[in-house]
């Protein structure tokens, strides 16, 4: 930890500031009591959110996904908070874990700026459309809309968990059999230094047309459900566009931040992003994201992946059950 602090002095400043901030907020709390929540209760909620967010960020970074994949489903499954509020906060969670990783990935040359800007347009457009659709659905359908969102999100989580189980099919250095004329024209060629091999690895991305279409879908899903899209960006870059796994993972963090930035503004302007709830989650993502990125090399990522798979399945059952309960007016005793 001390080495980490020396290596990343800004992390020490942020952690120090957070400790002082939460101490001062707790010790000199002036927040008045509200119906159902005392001023001290409000502080405990904020502190707990920050701690939980830091833990989620560390797990998410090690598992190679955005924090939104854990935050949004868990909050939707196990709390009564309005789904629009959860989704807007989920986008902040997903975005800030991507934001802090963008700098190191770009400086090391792992994220390919050409791939990033090619994929950015569909993912940004999709994300914006998704957030507009989420707000429209919430206004038009109310509780039924929330039930549909929970049910669909539950099904998507099952899909993501399966994707993680068969994730072994991700290829470190995918074989490129044929480069289509369009891919050759776009020319997403690059090279990076692979530390583990001690060699320069050259690559060329293919099927970039199909990849662009899939990114539109990934962006929409991320913006609509407030998940971010890290879980889907890596498979599209690696399996569809034949980009090396390391470049795909680094590009995923950068694209996540870029795509979500356009998706968040409609929520902010609608008043669906509430700072009192979102700020501790955002701060936890920044601190946990930096810590996770640096301890990644020293932990067994597979163990974290198993934890994530179990969490995703458990949460999906609860989400599907809650969605069906509201839609059909029945009671399903799950969890």
């Amino acid at each position: 930890m001390q080495t980490l602090m020396k290596k990343v002095p800004e992390l020490s400043i942020l952690i120090g500031l957070s400790i002082v901030a939460y101490f001062v907020m707790g010790a000199f709390n002036q927040v008045e009591d509200a119906a159902g929540l005392t001023g001290d209760g409000a502080f405990v909620l904020v502190l707990a959110s920050f701690v939980l967010s830091t833990m989620i960020a560390i797990i998410a970074v090690i598992a190679g996904v955005g924090g939104g994949v854990l935050f949004t489903p868990i909050m939707m499954a196990f709390t009564s908070i309005d789904t629009l509020i959860i989704r807007s906060t989920g986008l902040v969670v997903a975005m800030f874990s991507g934001l802090v990783s963008s700098g190191p990935f770009m400086r090391k040359g792992l994220a390919d700026v050409k791939i990033v800007f090619y994929c950015a347009i569909p993912i940004i457009l999709g994300g914006m459309l998704g957030s507009y659709a989420a707000i429209a659905l919430s206004e038009v359908m109310g509780a039924q809309g929330d039930a549909i969102v929970r049910l669909l999100l539950g099904l998507i989580l099952v899909f993501i968990a399966i994707l993680f189980i068969v994730g072994g099919s991700n290829t470190e250095y995918p074989e490129v059999k044929k480069v289509s004329p369009f891919s050759a024209w776009v020319n997403l060629k690059g090279a990076y230094y692979e530390e583990s091999l001690g060699q320069v690895v050259h690559y060329q991305s293919t099927r970039v047309g199909l990849g662009g279409l899939l990114f539109l879908l990934v962006g929409f899903t991320g913006g609509f459900f407030g998940l971010g899209g890290g879980w889907a960006v890596v498979p599209v870059l690696n399996l569809v566009m034949t980009t090396p796994l390391k470049v795909s993972a680094a590009g995923s963090g950068v694209l996540l931040a870029m795509g979500n930035s356009a998706a968040i503004w409609p929520y902010i302007k609608y008043g669906a992003l509430i700072a009192a709830l979102a700020a501790p989650w955002m701060l936890g993502q920044v601190i946990g994201g930096i810590m996770g990125a640096h301890i990644l090399a020293r932990v067994k990522a597979n163990f974290i992946r198993y934890v994530l798979i179990v969490l995703l399945f458990l949460t999906s059952f609860k989400l599907i059950a809650r969605g069906l309960e509201t839609m059909l007016g029945i009671d399903i005793p799950v969890l």
């Binding site: 002036q30 927040v31 008045e32 409000a42 908070i81 629009l84």
Partner: peptide
């Protein structure tokens, strides 16, 4: 937010209503 008595925008009211499940 936490050190201002009777803040113009109250974080406790916002948080209480969020956790009650109120709409925006």
């Amino acid at each position: 937010s936490f050190l201002t008595p009777n803040s113009a925008i109250s974080p406790s009211i916002l948080l209480a209503k969020i956790w009650e499940g109120k709409k925006v």
